[in-house]
């Protein structure tokens, strides 16, 4: 058994390593991906020659590809991820470290919102499949997956900030204040909520068909005890895994949520870099999010395999 786990860990670690190397390479090649001359693409064809030359030199595009790759690898290995074009004293890493906590808190708050709403909805559905309770909660979750967060955010602002004035509007003075986090967290968490309530329902229905549930019932346990003690705990494993795997989706969803609510964070850093054509910051931020996502997935998978040995196929 332990050798099975060992080989699983090794194999899973290896595929993650390959993915990480691939992610770095793809981020490096981002500049070259779109057909045509990168500098023409980035500046438009009308840009003055001085500016073109400056960008070409700054991105080392005047050097051979292997040298460019060397610079890129060096910027990763020295931990700076390069330096911002707009502020040469700042390394990209320092900008990311400054912005990341805001996005992390937002993502965690969104996860909390999603779990708090999804679990009761999913359980209620699974306990009464086919009834109006089930219909209502599954309709809610269907609407939740369909409503884009770039629209939900403004509508929440209209209702709770403009009309009811319960929560601060966009660009709050203190973005970390709990009141300023409520609407963004709901905006970002709704899609995850919808997905989780469906997962909870499906997972619980599946578990409730297992033999040990029948045994628990046969022992004369009450329906609630069967669901909460035996059903729910087992049904929760895949649900929690999905929460972990959706962490990356929250990170990329945060880009839009941060724009809607004028909040600082990785998304705002990335969007500002895009509008100011600050390529090292664009590449660094994208690389950071993707690497983080791969690592989080790895940790979630490994934890899952420890909790549920069936997964180590």
């Amino acid at each position: 058994m332990s050798s099975g786990l060992g080989s699983y860990l090794l194999r899973r670690g290896f595929t993650s390593m390959v993915a990480l190397v691939g992610v770095c390479l793809l981020v490096f090649f981002l500049i070259h991906l779109i057909p045509g001359d990168p500098v023409d693409n980035m500046l438009g064809e009308m840009a003055p020659a001085v500016e073109r030359t400056r960008l070409r030199e700054a991105l080392h595009l005047d050097k051979p590809l292997s040298t460019q790759l060397g610079y890129f690898v060096k910027s990763i290995s020295d931990g700076t991820l390069g330096h911002s074009f707009r502020n040469a004293d700042r390394s990209v890493t320092s900008l990311i470290i400054e912005a990341f906590p805001y996005t992390l808190w937002l993502a965690l708050a969104a996860m909390l919102v999603a779990l708090v709403l999804a679990l009761p909805l999913g359980i209620a559905s699974a306990l009464r499949p086919g009834t109006w309770v089930d219909g209502l909660s599954m309709t809610t979750s269907l609407l939740g997956v369909s409503v884009p967060n770039m629209w939900l955010g403004p509508m929440l602002l209209v209702a709770f900030s403009i009309h009811l004035a319960w929560f601060p509007g966009p660009a709050p003075n203190d973005p970390s204040a709990p009141a300023a986090l409520v609407l963004p967290a709901i905006t970002l968490g709704t899609a995850l909520m919808a997905m989780l309530s469906r997962m909870t329902r499906a997972s619980l229905l599946e578990v409730m068909g297992e033999d040990y549930i029948r045994t628990a019932r046969a022992k004369g346990l009450s329906a609630t005890a069967v669901v909460l003690k035996h059903g729910f705990r087992n049904a929760l494993i895949p649900v929690i895994t999905v929460v972990g795997l959706q962490f990356g989706a929250l990170m990329s969803g945060a880009i839009i949520t941060e724009k809607v609510f004028g909040r600082p964070g990785l998304g705002t850093l990335l969007m500002r870099a895009i509008t100011t054509r600050d390529y090292p910051v664009i590449q660094g931020t994208v690389l950071f999010i993707a690497v983080l996502y791969v690592l989080v997935n790895l940790v979630v998978d490994l934890t899952y395999s420890l909790v549920d040995p069936r997964i180590r196929r």
């Binding site: 691939g22 992610v23 390479l25 981002l30 990329s252 880009i255 994208v286 999010i289």
Partner: peptide
């Protein structure tokens, strides 16, 4: 590798 870029991140980049 492509799945390592969550959501619209790669499209955006």
């Amino acid at each position: 590798v492509l799945l390592a870029f969550p959501g619209i991140l790669l499209n955006l980049a």
